[in-house]
Simulated assay, not measured.
Amino acid sequence: MLRRRLGVARTLKDFQGQIYGLNNLGTLLLQTGNNQAAAQSLVEALEIARSVNNEEAEGLTLSNLGLVEFARGNYFDAIKQYKAAIVLRRRFRDPLGEANTRNNLGDAYLAANLPEDAAIAYGLALQLARTTSDTPNQFRAFRGLFNSYTEAGNYPPAFRALNQHIALAKEEKDLFQELIWLRLSAQLYTITGDLANARSFYEQAIALARVLEDTGEEALLQNDLAQILYQ
C-alpha cells in the first residue's frame, strides 16, 4: 500500500507526497529491522525535501535518519542527525516533533554513555511536552531522566523523576504507567541497597501485572524479586 501510494506521488510529481511517503516507508522498514533499505528511503526523502526547500519535511526526515543510525549503533551519528533536526523543528515551531526528537537525542546520549547530556535533552523534551499536554513524551522524558540520573549515580533526582512520573500516571489513570513506576522504583531501591522497599515495590508491581494480565511482565518481575530475596 505504501509503495503504491508512493508510486502515485511520483507519477503526479507530488514532491510533498513523495517525501512523506518515503518517510513512512523508511519508518516501516526500520521497524522490521531492514536498516539499509530504511536509510535508502530516507536519504531519498531528504534529497527531495532539500531540492524543493521544504525545511519542515527535512527536519522530520533528519529525525528519522537519526533513528536509523541509532538502530545501527552509530550513536554519535544519530546525535548529529537529531541536532540538525531540532534546529529545523524549532524554526517551524513544531513542539510535538521537537519534544520527540529531543527524547530521541536523550536516548542517543545515554547509549553513548553521556548521561549528563542525556538528562539535559530529556529535561528540554519534558518542558516542550508539558506546553502541549503531550502525555506520551512526558512519560518518556521522565523515564529518560530516571535512567540518566541512575546511570550517573545521582539518585535523589532519579527519585524525583519517579515521583513526577507517578503523579502524571495517577492524573491520567494510566495503570500501565503505574506498573512502570513500580518496576523502576523497585530497581532504584535495589541499587541503593534498600531491599525491604525494593521487595515491597516488586510485590505491588507483580500484583498490578496480574490485574493487567501482562504475563510476560509478571514473569520478569518474579525473576527480579527472586534475585533480591536470595541475595
Rank of each mutant, 00 (worst) to 15 (best):
V211C: 07
A125I: 01
E55I: 07
Q36F: 11
G216S: 13
E56K: 13
I120L: 14
L110R: 01
R72C: 03
N163Y: 09
G97R: 03
Q31L: 12
Q227P: 00
D174A: 15
N74C: 02
Y75C: 00
N113W: 10
Y109F: 11
G193E: 09
L22C: 01
K83M: 10
G33T: 06
G144L: 07
L60R: 09
A78R: 00
A49Y: 04
R5M: 11
Y122M: 02
N23K: 09
A169K: 07
A209S: 14
I191C: 04
V52E: 06
Y109E: 00
Q231M: 07
E58N: 03
Q16S: 10
L182G: 03
Y20T: 13
A152G: 10
A49N: 02
W181H: 09
E98G: 02
T132A: 12
D117T: 04
N24T: 10
N54E: 12
G193K: 05
A198W: 01
G33L: 11
R143T: 13
R160H: 12
Q36L: 13
L62M: 08
A118S: 09
R10N: 05
L114C: 12
S200I: 08
K83V: 11
A108K: 00
A85W: 03
A141V: 01
N163P: 04
R210Q: 15
Q16H: 12
M1N: 13
G144H: 02
L124T: 04
G73E: 01
Y75W: 07
T131V: 09
N34Q: 12
